[in-house]
């Protein structure tokens, strides 16, 4: 049994490493258009991974989570305008997002279910309004710019492609380690039954706030890179709830509560909506809406979730059979 599991584990690792290597060299073979699409996919997979940690694993749907994306983007822009290099600006932006998540987390994570989701929407709206009105610092409602990178667009796009790819890979690895650790069992117990989790010795408040801070960390880095990539950001763009609704759809399609789910979901949704955009742009929104409803109805556990369910059920069937033949 142990060796079999080990073999499977090794095979999976080899597959993942192979996939990463392919994606590292992929930009040499595709056009700038596709490089941009892939960069967006990696970014969405990262955000979806964070939503998945909060919702898929812990049961708290952070609908206004895009606030950390916006904070990451704006803090990076402000710090870089002050002359800081990007490798200092983004980590500092990320730090500020973590601080905000901890300060907001203690009161707001006391709310459960609907109330938590709505309170985060309210907070996002409030932060967006502050950014819109603090014109001297943020540039106000009309947005702000990043310093321009002195290089050819081709090189720049590849640079952001690789940045988002590494962000996605690192995020996914960290999530994998987190959910399979002792702390991760705490997270999952909170979704399963928060009161029981508390009475079993899990510090639920600490676990929830820390988890939100982890989710804020990666979302804010994605925001920082996104802003630098776009070189121009506006409040109603980087605080747009569409980022979160898209990420939720990706999580559901890929499979909530699985690590590969958000990645697959991001690939599927971005590809579908790209086709919808280019193919029949006028019906693009409706197509997305109908696709979402169809998926929620027919593959509620998502692609990866459905597959792992099948595997588990087969294992149980096999163990039942073995029991029968043994007895």
């Amino acid at each position: 049994m142990v060796t079999q599991d080990d073999n499977k584990f090794n095979k999976n690792i080899i597959l993942i490493i192979a996939a990463v290597i392919i994606f590292i060299f992929l930009p040499n073979f595709i056009s700038g258009y596709y490089i941009r699409i892939f960069t967006a996919i990696f970014m969405y997979a990262t955000i979806s991974q964070c939503i998945n940690l909060m919702s898929g694993y812990m049961g708290y749907l952070p609908f206004g989570h895009v606030m950390f994306f916006g904070i990451g983007a704006y803090m990076s822009a402000i710090l870089m305008k002050l002359g800081l290099p990007v490798f200092i600006a983004i980590p500092m932006a990320c730090l500020s997002a973590i601080i905000v998540s901890i300060i907001l987390g203690f009161p707001v994570l006391r709310l459960r279910g609907h109330y938590f989701a709505i309170a985060t929407i309210g907070m996002n709206g409030a932060i967006m309004t502050v950014v819109q009105n603090a014109t001297e610092i943020t540039g106000g409602a009309r947005g702000t710019t990043f310093p321009i990178i002195m290089a050819s667009p081709d090189v720049v796009y590849r640079y952001f492609y690789l940045a988002m790819l590494s962000l996605m890979v690192i995020t996914s690895l960290v999530m994998h380690v987190v959910v399979n650790s002792k702390f991760g069992y705490g997270i999952r117990s909170i979704k399963a039954n928060e009161d029981a989790a508390n009475s079993m010795g899990i510090n639920t408040t600490f676990t929830k706030v820390t988890t939100w801070a982890i989710a804020a960390l990666f979302t804010s880095i994605a925001g920082g890179i996104y802003g630098y990539w776009m070189s121009f950001i506006a409040p109603d763009e980087v605080f747009d709830l569409m980022f979160i609704t898209n990420s939720i759809i990706m999580m559901l399609i890929g499979g909530a509560g699985t690590i590969l789910g958000p990645i697959f979901g991001a690939f599927i949704v971005e590809t579908v909506s790209e086709v919808a955009w280019s193919g029949f742009m006028q019906y693009h929104l409706a197509a997305l809406g109908i696709a979402t409803i169809v998926i929620v109805f027919f593959v509620p556990r998502g692609v990866i979730g459905t597959i792992t369910d099948k595997i588990r059920n087969r294992r149980i069937e096999l163990s039942k059979k073995a029991e029968v033949t043994n007895g």
Binding site: R188, S189, K191, A192, N193
Partner: peptide, 10 residues
Amino acid sequence: KPLQGMTVEE
């Protein structure tokens, strides 16, 4: 109050 969605072992 079982932890829903988990296995008995978990």
